[in-house]
Design a protein around this nucleic acid. Structure first.
Lengths: 226, 226
DNA sequence: AAGTTTTGTTACAGTTTTGTCAACAATCCT
DNA sequence: AGGATTGTTGACAAAACTGTAACAAAACTT
């Protein structure tokens, strides 16, 4: 497999260096950029050879959102946003603008690399296929976050959407409440397990007649039927 | 057998004890070390059996960074650094050295354990194969928890499912009621042995015509015929 | 700042699961 | 055969699990 090239955009030299080192150690090629304007120029001049963009939100010249939007006008390259704190980040905002994923600082290198690899794996898998998952009567367009039941759009809240996505991504497998808490709410969330039930319930209501797609496996968790 | 072993390196006795107790309670094996030199020796002598290293930055003899670097020369074991200060220098330094994650003091044990678990989960996600056990007419898909008899799904209760799984995993061997109580109900369960009989009975009923797969070994226990 | 949506938690009722018992059946032993 | 031991099965109450509604806090909109 030939090496992928990643464009790293961050104004902090230290972070840039450490990301570069880590990515190179993982076998990627790295192009660096320290501000928004330069990043855009770099991308314009050589976007054919860039396979993924790591983009800090806070940048001089243009901020990360702007850079993201501009890049989107040129290309569908995967963009992963790096956010300093969770406060100043709005996930929905990020998705609307066209980012494919986001990673909160402080960055955990292995996690980041796992995420990057996941992207490339997904891309290699079906470059032709659109990112629309669909099962009998249920459609999930992951790029636009639109969910349809019998061709009618259903509006899901963020948590509901992620919950559904997690279930669908491991369809056929039973996932415990603990796992769902970890994957939807995060590994550092310590709320009660009943919370999952409630959200499953809300999700089912919104799925309407297709609610049977989410099965309860008593004593174990939930499962999406593919 | 499934237990992961964690090497805890910290010079403060209190913290070491705190971490050890917590980790052991969570089902990990723990090896301790109080200074850098000893940690390295320990790791060199038994790094085959160490699955993760918790490493304090400030240590006598060698400091945490040095220990980290040396361990990296030997192995790719995940390393989580415990840092007292939260300024960027530590993190950058850590990235360069090759640590996988950071946890800032003061440590919240539950959060730390969650992080460790997240790590292990991600790691053995790679070598996770959906194992489907199947015998004439009986199928057990452990990832989805679906059991089929003659291609027809059979719904088992949690206890029934685990019971069946235990039996199947040691097929051909006779397992005593005591062993079944231990492995299905847990080491700290003190119920009567008859309980096993009842559940075997219920299991057989649900297995229908395939009930002969579970044989009674009079005076000893039960056996699954593979 | 007020109103709306999302989210986490709790409470409770309906259902399933579970443990235990006791009667009954089968097997073993002398 | 007869008694003793062991296994099976049905009944039933206790415990556990889940779905749902209600409510309050938090986040987001306008």
């Amino acid at each position: 497999m030939d090496n992928k090239t990643i464009l790293v955009v961050d104004d902090e030299l230290k972070i840039r260096i450490l990301l570069k080192d880590f990515l190179i150690r993982e076998g990627f090629n790295v192009i660096e950029s320290s501000d928004g304007r330069h990043a855009l120029e770099t991308f314009q001049s050589s976007h054919k050879s860039i396979d993924l963009v790591l983009l800090d939100v806070m940048l001089p010249e243009y901020d990360g959102w702007t850079v993201c939007r501009e890049i989107r006008k040129l290309s569908d390259v995967p963009i992963i946003m790096l956010t300093a704190r969770s406060d100043d980040f709005d996930e929905v905002h990020g998705f609307e603008i066209g980012a494919d994923d986001y990673v909160k600082k402080p960055i955990r290198p292995t996690a980041l690399v796992a995420r990057i690899n996941a992207f490339f794996r997904r891309m290699d898998k079906g470059n032709q296929e659109s990112k629309v998952l669909s099962f009998d009567g249920l459609e999930i367009d992951d790029s636009s976050h639109v969910v349809k039941v019998n061709n009618k759009e259903v509006v899901l809240s963020p948590k509901e959407y992620v919950l559904l996505l997690i279930l669908v991504e491991s369809k056929g497998q039973t996932i415990s409440r603990e796992q769902l808490l970890n994957r939807v709410w995060g590994y550092d969330y310590f709320g009660g397990l009943r919370t999952v039930d409630t959200h499953i319930n809300r999700l089912r209501i919104k799925l309407g007649e297709k609610d049977y797609l989410i099965t309860t496996i008593r004593g174990f968790g939930y499962r999406f039927e593919g």
